[in-house]
Computed example of a mutant assay.
Amino acid sequence: MTDEQLQAWIEQISLRSFGVPFRHQARFNSRLRTTGGRYFMKSHHIEINPAQLATYGEEEVERIIKHELCHYHLHLAGRGYQHRDADFKALLQKVGGSRYCHSLPGSKQRKVLPHRYKLVCTECGMEYLRKRRVDPNRYRCGKCAGRLRLYTLSGG
């Protein structure tokens, strides 16, 4: 699929699903690695990852396009266009866009760190597991406001 075909496809989806035309530029960007697409707030352009199309097909990429068009139309309308906004979530649900794109095969998975530290309240015994070392003197227990003591867990 060419950039021109992508442009026409996005314009068609915008009219069919949103009832509003897409008046900016759309293109493929093969440098995208961790995302299916992105919307640029300054230029209002949309980029789509061509690897998503090659791997998962047109149906999945259409959901990604709807996701980016939600950002586009809400931003231009002056409404909540960010992932956390209720307007965005409601419109995404209404048009059937994807909340997250599938990860590509061969992409690196994020390394999950084990819990290596434990903070224990000296007053009530509440325990807080941490993956990174923190200074216990900077924090207090969330339950009773008691002092915390830091322990290093073995096997991590």
Rank of each mutant, 00 (worst) to 15 (best):
M1C: 13
T2D: 12
D3W: 14
W9M: 06
W9T: 03
W9S: 05
W9N: 03
I10Q: 11
I10A: 13
I10C: 13
E11W: 14
E11H: 13
Q12N: 13
Q12C: 12
Q12F: 15
S14A: 15
S14I: 12
L15K: 13
L15G: 11
R16H: 15
F18A: 11
G19S: 11
V20P: 08
P21D: 11
F22C: 08
F22Y: 14
F22Q: 06
R23C: 12
H24V: 07
A26F: 14
A26C: 10
A26S: 10
R27A: 06
S30N: 14
R31H: 15
L32F: 10
R33S: 15
R33F: 14
T34V: 15
T35N: 12
T35K: 15
T35P: 04
Y39H: 06
F40V: 11
S43D: 09
H44A: 12
I46R: 08
I46A: 07
I46P: 04
I46H: 08
E47R: 10
E47N: 09
E47L: 12
I48T: 07
I48Q: 03
I48H: 07
N49A: 09
Q52A: 07
A54D: 11
Y56Q: 07
E60L: 13
E60P: 07
E60K: 15
E60N: 12
V61Y: 11
V61E: 02
V61S: 02
R63G: 04
I64F: 08
I64D: 02
I64T: 02
K66E: 01
E68G: 01
E68Q: 03
E68T: 03
L69Q: 06
C70Y: 01
H71M: 00
H71L: 00
Y72W: 04
L74S: 00
L74H: 00
L76W: 04
A77T: 00
A77M: 03
G80R: 00
H83L: 04
R84G: 05
R84H: 07
A86E: 09
D87A: 04
D87M: 02
A90M: 03
A90V: 04
L92I: 04
K94P: 05
G96I: 03
G97Q: 02
G97N: 01
Y100G: 01
H102C: 05
H102K: 07
H102E: 08
S103M: 08
S103Y: 04
S103V: 07
L104M: 04
K108M: 15
K108V: 14
R110W: 13
R110P: 08
K111S: 07
V112I: 13
L113E: 09
L113T: 11
L113H: 10
Y117E: 01
K118C: 10
V120T: 08
C121R: 02
E123Q: 11
E123N: 10
C124W: 05
M126D: 06
E127C: 11
Y128D: 05
R130F: 14
K131N: 05
K131H: 13
R132E: 07
R133H: 11
D135C: 09
D135Q: 09
N137S: 12
N137K: 12
R138W: 05
R138H: 05
R140K: 09
R140H: 09
C141V: 01
C141A: 01
K143H: 11
A145L: 10
R147C: 05
R147W: 13
R147N: 08
L148C: 03
S154N: 10
G156D: 06
G156T: 10
G156F: 14
